[in-house]
């Protein structure tokens, strides 16, 4: 099952990238205190998903030699500044979280085909929380956008 292990590896890796990026945005925009606290909270969820996935990784391996490099999204090593910068950073987080979500969707499909209950459970519960991460990002962007686009000094 080389390709499932590729996707298990991608799930693990993309959650790690998302968690690191959420923390970078949290700390880089700490003056926006809701962003600071919520991004740290959401990063913890991604950590937990990886923790749940760990036994599956142990079973399938994370052998991703065949994986095309372009599947890996780079995280946000550093953040932008100011309100428009925040908007862009939230948008990048949304892209990363979308990658996580589609990965879990694909992994869940594979798990069903294999009748792997453990993996299906991990993929389903993680996917549900990824949805909540995306919802918050979307909510926050919608609230911030007009001010940032129109009157930001």
């Amino acid at each position: 099952m080389p390709h499932l292990s590729t996707y298990v590896g991608l799930a693990d890796h993309s959650e790690k990238t998302l968690a690191e990026s959420l923390r970078a945005v949290a700390d880089g925009h700490a003056a926006e205190v809701d962003v600071f606290h919520t991004c740290h909270l959401l990063a913890g969820w991604s950590d937990e998903h990886r923790h749940l996935l760990a036994p599956v990784v142990a079973r399938y391996g994370e052998d991703d030699v065949e994986e095309p490099e372009r599947l890996h999204a780079d995280g946000l090593a550093e953040v932008r500044s100011g309100p428009v910068g925040l908007l862009r950073d939230l948008q990048d987080l949304h892209v990363l979280a979308t990658l996580v979500q589609t990965t879990w969707t694909v992994v869940a499909q594979g798990a069903q085909g294999l009748r792997d209950h453990e993996l299906l459970q991990v993929a389903t519960t993680s996917n549900a929380e990824t949805t909540r991460q995306l919802t918050w990002l979307n909510t926050r962007m919608k609230a911030a956008a007009p001010q940032a686009l129109i009157v930001d000094p």
Binding site: T38, L41, L42, R132, Q133, T135, W136, T139
Partner: peptide
């Protein structure tokens, strides 16, 4: 809303 994040339904 999501009670933990405030994300809007």
């Amino acid at each position: 809303h999501d009670l933990l994040t405030g994300g809007a339904v």
